[in-house]
């Protein structure tokens, strides 16, 4: 198993010095696993905990109880070196293409960061590698010198994918990667993910509210509601023959 989560719990507490807020249970005893080469979709509505789950696996949000292992190692217990290797093997692509790049740096500089950190490419060769990556995601290599605001939403999302691929990750975590895009642009980006998966052979976890996007992209799917997994299964089976009421409601709303 590439990723295995056991009995994950996370409560977000609000409150300050003298007040302890009631807290929101964002992850309620969540267990799942993701095999190498698998494409796993996570669907749910806002507040279902799907984004928290993804951020937990990215080690951006600490969890309260349970465990998450990546390639057998507990991510909360990683030392400096292990964490650095983990960071290079797991990469996110976020929802909002407008703030996914630092507005002060050129797109090429942001993509080059991955190569610099990995140190597997000679400094002199980095611009060439960046150009090759941009070409891979279907962008004009000349865009390396462009600033983020000069790109369209779809172009920025492609560039964000290029940045994630620079470190040759084993797992790509996608958080609503196309929900801010137009339908025709979404189709291009989803096709691109499929093409790249064939070429770069990464596993994939896709978090979205959009069930059809999951059925197009993923082999298996988890359905989340109020922090808990309500149903899981092979995508086609789950859509054709949903077991829980909630999944049935999702499926019927998606038509």
């Amino acid at each position: 198993m590439l990723v295995a989560a056991r009995n994950l719990r996370k409560t977000f507490r609000s409150g300050g010095l003298f007040r302890r807020g009631a807290g929101v249970l964002a992850l309620d005893d969540v267990s799942f696993s993701l095999a190498e080469g698998e494409s796993l979709g996570v669907v749910g509505e806002s507040g279902s905990g799907k984004s928290t789950l993804l951020r937990t696996i990215l080690r951006l949000t600490p969890y309260d109880a349970g465990s998450v292992t990546f390639d057998g190692a507990e991510i909360a217990a990683m030392d400096r070196g292990a964490l650095r290797r983990f960071r290079q093997r797991v990469q996110p692509v976020f929802q909002n293409p407008y703030s996914t790049f630092n507005p002060r740096f050129s797109v090429g500089a942001s993509i080059a960061l991955g190569f610099e950190l990995l140190g597997n490419v000679d400094k002199a060769d980095i611009p060439g590698e960046v150009a090759r990556l941009l070409d891979d995601v279907g962008l004009d290599p000349d865009l390396a010198s462009a600033l983020p605001h000069q790109l369209s939403g779809g172009q920025r999302q492609r560039a964000a994918i290029a940045r994630a691929l620079a470190v040759k990750p084993d797992l790509l975590l996608l958080d609503e990667p196309t929900s801010a895009l137009d339908v025709s642009v979404q189709a291009q980006v989803l096709n691109l993910f499929k093409d790249l998966q064939g070429r770069y052979a990464f596993s994939l976890m896709l978090v979205t509210h959009d069930l059809p996007v999951v059925t197009f992209m993923c082999d298996n799917v988890l359905v989340m509601k109020s922090g808990a997994i309500v149903e899981r299964g092979e995508t086609g089976t789950l859509v054709r023959d949903p077991e829980s009421d909630y999944t049935r409601k999702l499926v019927s709303s998606a038509v």
Partner: peptide
């Protein structure tokens, strides 16, 4: 809280 910063963290910067 900006995604670009989280992306940098996830790159291991």
């Amino acid at each position: 809280r900006q995604p670009f910063l989280e992306a940098a963290i996830c790159l291991g910067v």
